[in-house]
Simulated assay, not measured.
Amino acid sequence: MTKELSYTIEEVSQILKVSKLTVYDLVKKGELPVFRVGRQMRLDAKDLENYIENHKMNQRDFSSPAQVVPPRKIEAKDSRNIVISGQDIVLDILGKHIEKYSDYKTLRSYEGSLNSLIAMYNGTCDIVSVHMFDGDSGEYNLPYIKKILVGHPYILINLVLRKAGFYVQKGNPLNISTWDDLSKKHVNIINREKGSGARILLDEQLRIHNISPKVIKGYEHEESNHLSVASAVSTGVADVGVGIEKAAKMVGVDFIPLITERYDLVILKNPENKHLIHIVKEILSSPLFQSEITSLGDYDHSKTGSIIYETF
């Protein structure tokens, strides 16, 4: 283990054989100290070794009577660590503003919408971004949040509006333009992972259009982010994929817009988050933040900062 000077979060999760969200939770609690290299968090190899040694259980641990171990005291600096979950670059800008105008230190998790929301329910995420389409109501996010965050008070705030649709090869040689086109035998798709907003959009559209996933060629082939899906289309690995407009322009594939999705933020309403909610509201409503979003292109901030729903 000492051959490596430091590890990424993903490498730590592989070494410990746990999910990345579990690692982020340990970081948030201060049990795994990290440092930053640009936007990336890294963990010193010696610190990982110390963590493993401190959590080893020997035979005596199992044979001796159970002992009550007091919880580790969380220092003030630990309580200022917050985890923002989601993949859009807008979240990186939000994290930068949060650190600039408060004492919070932001950590990033790159899980999809559904998995991020479940992580929030389990207490391992502080700000979750969601874009989950409900085919029955035609509404984004709230139908899912109401079912998952049962018993938790929360606030839902709009971050941006953005276009979602198809990535297709330059010139759209297969003339793909509708959800029904995905079922054609000569069309090969690249899918997103289960729990991502793009995967939910696809599955809901297939359901309401009465299209079985079994007839979709490439349905089982998954990638974990918008850029990877767009790149698969660009290189000819697939003919079409579902994602957002920004990634299409970054990779250089054509984009067929199909829906305007509401990309929202969820924060639990509790005493610990009262100041955080205030900070996020102020940032989202500020001209400076909105001008940065405008400069990126392909985002609509007309509803940015609007409270979509709030429990009382």
Results as ranks from 00 to 15, higher is better:
98 I>G: 08
166 F>P: 04
140 Y>D: 09
207 R>I: 03
213 P>L: 02
164 A>F: 10
142 L>A: 11
187 V>R: 01
4 E>H: 03
139 E>V: 07
154 Y>D: 01
218 G>F: 09
238 A>N: 12
304 T>E: 10
186 H>R: 03
261 E>S: 11
280 V>F: 02
50 N>Q: 15
225 N>V: 05
70 P>I: 13
181 D>W: 00
202 L>Q: 07
150 V>C: 05
167 Y>C: 11
68 V>T: 14
71 P>Q: 12
113 S>T: 11
276 L>R: 00
53 E>G: 01
10 E>V: 11
303 K>Q: 15
135 G>A: 13
68 V>A: 15
177 S>H: 12
297 G>D: 06
91 L>M: 06
256 I>M: 06
115 N>W: 09
65 P>H: 08
277 I>E: 09
214 K>T: 08
8 T>P: 01
177 S>A: 11
3 K>G: 03
156 L>A: 10
84 I>M: 05
131 H>P: 06
134 D>T: 02
66 A>V: 13
258 L>Y: 03
60 R>K: 12
48 L>D: 03
205 Q>H: 12
267 I>F: 05
247 A>N: 12
179 W>E: 08
232 A>L: 05
23 V>F: 02
129 S>A: 15
193 E>R: 12
65 P>S: 13
266 V>P: 09
215 V>T: 14
205 Q>Y: 08
23 V>C: 02
216 I>M: 11
203 D>A: 02
51 Y>K: 04
289 F>N: 12
284 L>Q: 07
191 N>Y: 13
142 L>C: 02
198 A>L: 10
257 P>Y: 04
289 F>A: 10
5 L>T: 05
93 I>S: 12
178 T>G: 04
229 V>T: 09
